[in-house]
Amino acid sequence: EEWMVEKALMVRTGLGARQIESYRQGAWIEGVHFKRVSPSGESTLRGTTWYNYPEINKFIR
């Protein structure tokens, strides 16, 4: 699984929702560690946020 939603990321990493938000707003790079995608497939600020687990795992190492 490369891309996953927040709940799956929480299960895989043990991070809480606030921790994920903090990383997203600070250290993680949009387009690398996470992306927002609307149902139409376009990038957007209001779409579902998807997280790239392999890239996040590399960051944590």
Rank of each mutant, 00 (worst) to 15 (best):
E42P: 09
Y23F: 11
M4T: 03
Y53N: 02
K35N: 04
I29M: 06
M10R: 07
V11H: 12
I60Q: 04
F34G: 00
E42G: 11
A17I: 11
E1F: 08
T13H: 02
E21C: 08
G41C: 07
L45D: 15
T48H: 07
L9M: 04
L15H: 01
N57H: 12
M10H: 04
Y53M: 05
G16R: 11
I56P: 01
Y23E: 02
R36H: 15
R36P: 05
R61I: 14
Y53R: 02
V37E: 13
W28H: 01
L15N: 01
A8F: 07
K7N: 09
A8R: 08
R12P: 02
W50I: 13
T13K: 01
S38W: 12
E2A: 07
I60R: 03
A8H: 10
M10L: 05
W3G: 01
S43E: 12
S38A: 13
E1P: 09
Y23K: 02
F34R: 00
S40M: 11
I60S: 03
Q25Y: 08
K7F: 09
P54M: 09
Y53W: 12
Q25W: 06
V37A: 09
V32G: 01
T48P: 06
A27V: 11
R46V: 14
M4D: 00
I56N: 00
S40N: 12
L9G: 00
M10E: 05
E1L: 07
H33D: 02
K35F: 06
Y51I: 01
V5N: 15
N57I: 15
V11E: 15
L9P: 00
E6K: 14
H33M: 03
Q19L: 07
G31S: 04
M10V: 06
E2Q: 08
E6L: 15
H33P: 01
G16K: 13
N52A: 02
E55T: 05
V11L: 14
H33R: 01
A27L: 09
V37N: 07
T49E: 05
I60L: 15
T44I: 09
A17F: 08
E30S: 05
W28E: 00
F59R: 03
T44F: 09
S38F: 14
Y23T: 01
R12N: 06
P54G: 08
M10I: 09
W3Y: 02
N52S: 05
G16C: 14
E2D: 11
R61K: 14
I60P: 02
E55I: 06
P54K: 09
V32R: 06
G31H: 05
V32H: 05
K35Q: 06
K58P: 02
Y23S: 03
S38L: 11
V37H: 07
R12Y: 08
S43Q: 10
G47V: 13
F34W: 14
K58V: 06
E42K: 06
Y53H: 04
R24G: 03
Y23V: 02
K35M: 10
E55D: 03
G41W: 07
K7S: 15
A8I: 11
E2S: 07
G47F: 13
E42Y: 06
Q19K: 05
G14Q: 05
A8E: 15
I20T: 02
Q19D: 10
T13Y: 03
Y51D: 00
N52R: 02
E42T: 09
R18T: 11
E6S: 05
I29C: 05
W50K: 04
R12W: 08
P54R: 09
R12H: 09
P54L: 10
M4S: 02
S38I: 13
P54I: 13
T48K: 07
W50V: 13
E21D: 07
G14I: 02
P39Y: 10
G31T: 03
Q19G: 03
Y51Q: 01
R12T: 06
N57T: 14
K58S: 08
I20H: 01
T48C: 08
K7I: 09
V11A: 15
E21I: 07
S43D: 13
N57V: 15
S40H: 11
K7E: 15
F59P: 01
K58T: 07
W50L: 15
S43K: 07
V32D: 02
R36W: 15
V37K: 06
R61P: 04
I56L: 02
R18S: 13
T49C: 08
R12I: 11
G26D: 11
L15R: 00
Y53V: 06
H33A: 00
V5A: 09
R12V: 10
A27P: 11
G14A: 04
K58L: 08
K35S: 07
T48D: 11
G16W: 06
V37S: 10
Y53E: 04
I60A: 03
V37M: 10
Y51R: 00
M10W: 04
R24T: 12
I20L: 07
F59E: 03
L45V: 12
K7C: 13
E42V: 09
Y23D: 02
S40D: 14
R61Q: 14
R18L: 12
G14N: 05
A8Y: 08
V37Y: 08
I60G: 03
P54T: 15
V32S: 03
R18I: 10
T44G: 14
G26W: 12
E30F: 05
R18Q: 14
G26T: 14
G26E: 11
K35H: 04
M4P: 01
G31L: 04
V5D: 15
E6R: 10
A27S: 10
A27Y: 11
W28Q: 01
Q19F: 04
S38H: 12
W50G: 01
W28Y: 00
H33C: 02
Q19C: 09
F59Q: 04
T48W: 06
T49Q: 04
I56F: 02
I29P: 00
I29K: 09
K58W: 06
W28L: 02
Y51H: 00
Y51E: 00
L9Q: 00
G31W: 06
E42H: 09
K7P: 06
T44H: 12
I60T: 04
R46S: 15
S22N: 13
R46M: 14
G41Q: 09
Y53L: 13
M4A: 02
K35T: 08
A27C: 13
G14T: 03
A17D: 05
P39S: 12
V11Q: 14
I20A: 01
T49D: 05
R36S: 13
S22Y: 15
E1Y: 09
K58N: 09
L45Q: 12
Q19T: 06
G31Y: 05
A17S: 11
G16Y: 07
N57K: 14
W3M: 01
E21Y: 08
E21G: 05
G14R: 05
R61W: 09
E2C: 11
Q25A: 10
